[in-house]
Design a protein around this nucleic acid. Structure first.
Lengths: 244, 244
DNA sequence: GGCAAAAGATGACATCTGTCAACTTTCAGA
DNA sequence: TCTGAAAGTTGACAGATGTCATCTTTTGCC
């Protein structure tokens, strides 16, 4: 059904909107530093995919033959620890490119990626990326800048994980969800995560996560409706996260 | 005295060994991708510094005007958490370049750096680096590759921090010290860290760290002599770290 | 060699957090 | 609409960990 709609629109609009050059999300990532010709090559080689919530993009240890540019939806990047738990290392959203690290380092992926909401992604074969990396210093520098940013974020996560209590980390995670993914018209967090996913973001047991969220609810910091959650006292959560 | 020896040798040997081109540690980092001319510019601009154990290279929040290439010794890169504890994020040793991330991202440093042993470093003003980053894609790519590697390591640290117990992390830290810095002729770990530093690496309280090290000693996994430490049962430590 | 400061060590105790088990609610598919 | 599976919730409890206080050892320095 969707396939049909896709072809239909493409047919009558000349498919202009499916070319990277016209893609808005490109503005947010390193692809903006590509020349017209390079972008054309990427556009010709790319494959657009639709993913349903829960679908995997790739698994840990898999060899990636390219990168994924997120057009819509959110993906969780996680790593299995030796005790069998999944640690979510990053949530990637519109405009972010997934898999760059592995392609650049020519290693198998250290993470697995899975859709946490319905997604639309473009798969870009690595040849289109790697050749540009060796020829266009502006592009390479742009990728470098993004990776420098990711590395700083990773450093911050390390400090939070090792120095803050579970309660502080959960408070922080909720604020993160609000600032990065926003709220819907009713004030609920736009990105709905299961309690298990939240627990895996902050690195705790699902039960502990549930217990702390219940506490937050009883204290009036948040409200819930089904799996949807709304922040009702941002101030308090922020104080908590900072350790007051 | 050391200063004197330095000048003396330099004088009679034509100072060849103080030019980046002839520096061995360069082989281990991105500088190996520089052209002769670029390397010459770096060599002319660089400033060699000797640091005593405990001396700071730079502080968190400081604007870095260049990077530091480690010729000898070890530096700890740490970040102060909101609860007042220092979290060591990385130990940088011979051949590693410190401060790249901040220079690339044009941000103040997110970390502070301090010598944990006597060090010799070369300070390279950022101009010499940045201009090359924009002109030589091989160099940029090489920096990118190193940063991709750092990012993977950071991901691993995140998982370890959030999923392993303090005991597991300490066991892992000891093995890390052995594989990365080696042992002296008597079998003691070559890099001597205080209990507090070890605690800050694994993200725990100094007392907890001491307690666990005492336990390891009583169980025969390690031996100590003053602040020096030797691993006597690597197998057991490895099993412990992996969760058996 | 002696002394003060720093580092290391240990006990006591409260609290945080994970685990196991039971139960309820929600949700998607037949 | 029904129903089984998945998700969410809660209690009980043990073990891990942080904190505070005190004491000992080591180290650097005069």
């Amino acid at each position: 059904m969707f396939k049909f709609g896709y072809i239909y629109i493409g047919f009558f609009s000349g498919m202009e909107e499916h070319r990277c050059e016209n893609c808005i999300v490109r503005k947010f990532n390193a692809l903006r530093a590509m020349s017209k010709e390079e972008l054309k090559a990427v556009s010709d080689a790319k494959i657009t995919k639709s993913l349903k919530k829960g679908d995997p993009l790739f698994e840990e240890g898999e060899k990636l033959n390219g990168v994924f540019c997120v057009r819509a939806g959110v993906s969780k990047l996680s790593k299995l620890s030796s005790n069998g738990k999944d640690q979510i290392v990053k949530l990637a959203t519109k405009g972010e490119v997934i898999g760059q690290r592995s392609v650049v380092a020519e290693e198998t992926s250290n993470l697995s990626a899975k859709a946490v909401s319905d997604m639309e992604v473009c798969f870009i074969p690595k040849e289109a990326i790697v050749s540009t990396l060796h020829k266009n210093p502006d592009f390479t520098f742009e990728v470098l800048r993004h990776m420098a940013h990711d590395l700083r974020e990773a450093d911050d996560v390390i400090v939070n994980m090792s120095q803050k209590t579970v309660k502080q980390r959960i408070a922080e995670a909720l604020l993160y969800l609000k600032t990065n993914f926003g709220e819907d018209s009713e004030g609920f967090l736009a990105l709905v995560l299961s309690r298990e996913d939240i627990a895996n973001v902050v690195g705790t047991a699902t039960e502990s996560c549930i217990r702390i969220l219940s506490e937050f609810r009883s204290k009036g910091y948040i409200e819930t409706s089904g799996k949807r959650m709304a922040i009702t006292d941002e101030r308090k959560l922020r104080d908590l996260a900072e350790g007051f």
